[in-house]
Simulated assay, not measured.
Amino acid sequence: MKYDKIPKEYLLEASSALGALRKKLRWKSGKDIQHLEKRKAMGHLPGHSLLEDYNTLIYELIEDDDNIVYLYEFGVKRYYAVRGKVHKVDWIVIFSKDGIMETAFPPRGIDDYIEKRGFKLVGKIREVLER
Rank of each mutant, 00 (worst) to 15 (best):
M1G: 14
M1I: 12
K2D: 10
K2R: 12
K2V: 11
D4M: 08
D4L: 05
K8C: 06
L11W: 14
L11V: 08
E13N: 12
E13G: 03
S15E: 12
S15V: 01
S16Y: 11
S16G: 07
S16A: 13
A17K: 04
A17L: 07
L18Q: 06
A20H: 05
A20G: 09
K23E: 12
K23C: 05
K24T: 05
L25Q: 00
R26E: 14
K28A: 13
K28G: 05
S29F: 10
D32G: 12
I33V: 15
Q34V: 11
Q34Y: 14
Q34G: 05
L36A: 04
E37V: 06
K38Q: 15
R39M: 10
K40Y: 02
A41I: 02
M42Y: 12
M42W: 09
G43L: 06
G43R: 00
H48R: 14
S49L: 02
L50M: 11
L50D: 05
L51K: 04
E52Y: 08
E52H: 05
D53R: 01
Y54F: 14
N55I: 00
I58F: 01
Y59E: 08
Y59W: 08
I62W: 07
E63T: 11
D64N: 15
D64Q: 09
D65Q: 13
D66S: 14
I68Q: 14
I68F: 12
V69A: 08
V69N: 06
V69Q: 07
Y70L: 10
L71M: 11
Y72D: 11
E73Q: 15
E73N: 15
F74S: 14
G75N: 07
R78V: 08
R78A: 06
Y80K: 03
Y80M: 01
Y80A: 01
A81S: 14
A81W: 02
A81C: 11
A81K: 09
V82S: 01
G84E: 04
K85W: 01
V86Y: 15
K88W: 10
K88N: 13
K88F: 09
V89Y: 03
D90I: 07
W91M: 03
I92L: 15
V93D: 00
V93Y: 04
I94R: 07
I94L: 12
S96K: 05
S96Q: 03
K97S: 15
D98C: 04
G99P: 06
I100V: 15
M101N: 01
F105S: 04
P106D: 05
P106K: 02
R108P: 08
D111R: 15
D112C: 08
Y113G: 05
E115D: 13
K116I: 10
K116C: 03
K116W: 09
F119K: 02
K120S: 09
K120E: 11
K120R: 15
L121Q: 04
V122R: 03
V122K: 03
K124P: 05
K124N: 07
I125F: 10
V128Q: 03
L129D: 00
L129F: 05
L129W: 04
L129R: 08
R131M: 09
R131E: 10
